[in-house]
Design a protein around this nucleic acid. Sequence first.
DNA 1: CCTGACTGCCC
DNA 2: ATTCTGC
DNA 3: GCAGAATGGGCAGTCAGG
Length: 617
Amino acid sequence: MRLMKFSSFARCLRELESTASRKEMVGILAELLKRSSEEEVGKICYLCLGRLAPVYRSVEFNVAEKTMLKVLSFSFGVREDEVRSRYKKLGDLGSVAELLRGEYRGAGRGGDLEVAEVYNELLRIARDSGAGSQERKVHSLAALLRKLSPLGVRYCARIPLGQLRLGFSDVTLIEALAVMVGGGKEEVKFIRQKFNIRPDVGEIVRVIKLHGLEGLKEVGVEIGTPILPALAERMPTMEKIVEKLGEFAVEPKMDGIRLQIHLNKAVNGQPLVDSLESQRELFNEQGSKKESPGALVCIFSRRLDDVTDMFPDVVAAVQKLPVDSAIMDGEAIAYNPDTEEFLPFQETMKRKRKYNVAQKAAELPLKVFLFDLLFLNGKSLLETAFGERRRLLEKLVLDGNLLMAARHTKVNSARKLKKLFDLYISEGLEGVMCKRLDSPYQAGARNFNWVKYKRSAEGVGLPDTVDGLVMGYYAGRGQRAKFGVGAFLAGVFNPQKDRFETIAKVGTGLTDDQWREFSRRVGPLEVKAKPAEYCVAKELECDAWLRPGLVVEIDADEVTCSPVHTAARGLNIVRTGAENGAGLSLRFPRLVRFRDKLPEEATTVEEIMEMYRMQQT
DNA sequence: CCTGACTGCCC
DNA sequence: ATTCTGC
DNA sequence: GCAGAATGGGCAGTCAGG
């Protein structure tokens, strides 16, 4: 079979981009996969998804928006501010690149590259690092783009940004795999199950091409290969949760970092699995061995990043577990051993690091609350009911110091649920997780087997919503480009200084109609320069500034200390662990509605401080 | 050797 | 993370 | 109800440049 040309691939992507129906997309994708040969089909899958490798071995490009502007400028000899202004208007670097390529009259059209050649070059560029690498990346990407057709450039330029914006992702691609082999719903389900335990579409399609669906049967849960984590849905009220779940258990929801922990002990001095290391070699990584005598531990984040090196304390504790092999799901959170209090998410995040790991581990000891067991002593438990998985989890002898089982209470009424919810909130936790006792571990799925109910679900996350002044806005990308807005900057009023200080950017909560309304309302307020009474960090510089006029109601989950937002900065606040000069901001801000209020009637910095104090207790 | 812009990944 | 939209 | 695509705050790491 001939290798596919990139131009041909690009035409297929254009067809996909202009297709809205998922059914049709599946058909087009199936045809594309059928047309590609074994050697290239994996690469084609990754490229389709805007990647170069499966998520769990993600290749960091270290090239994104800003660098791509430079690439386009350099590649097609257009001033950078010209590229930037086109980008602001179109909201998509692929479209900008395509136009510039079309207008480009310079030499440099090489022959028609194959998809695999483009892939290989992108991978080479991504892997470049160290001194001078940024410049080399810009030059290499620019040279690559010049070798492609305008349509090829459109998609090639989007790949380093990690998304092709074609309207499909992993799941749709899997459906296409099933269709490729002439399968139906059953086959989709089968392939998806395999994908959940081997989240690598490229690998799965290679297996199917070589050995058919039969070959996929060999794929099982493997220590060292992450399983897609199960995710929780949300519901508006506790009554609805009880109604929906029937018999379920309640666990506290901790505000930490999700960890999937794999353990494999040696049998007769032989590690049961060596795939982790061999797979790393395949991708030329310098993965250091983490085996202490006989026990391999690896830890994955929610997005399947290998974070083993960041948690040596967890590794040590897990190695002591009296089992041959296991995969556990849990949440890690930093705590203060003197007060026994859990620390805010921002503190836990400091444990996610590459350097000074041991020092930080001592400063910020962790608790890991295990809440699920997916694999034990060589056997997958994914199909085992949650109640039984939980029973097995409790039989593991956890050390009770770092490793603990999450508290777990069977519940069948809204009254009991409410009681537990109140208890956990009083302990300063985020809320509760409600889990069906009879459900399997639904890897990769966000569904109603698990339902989260957070503090913020109680109508509002904060003691009250915030009325913020809209100070300016930012150009939208992708589908937001047509509104001319993608997000806006909101501020609160400081009456002492008679000025507005920023508290959040807001980019969600508006319907398409509200975005249009936003544009209408904001038009008459536009001014050329930032008003003098606005106190804004330079990182938050808006694309368009507005004089005071529009006030909006904003909800959020929490008020947090901020290194960039200026709200209440300089006021004497008692803050744990925050440096002087920090302001306040909102966590997960979203618009509730437009208000008809005067700018001076916006929430004041004192009121924000009061909200901040209230949540501390 | 330090700082700031940028990137990627946690939520 | 939250939220909205099209299928 | 699912899949996908917009968007948030904030942390650490990388690299360029003073």
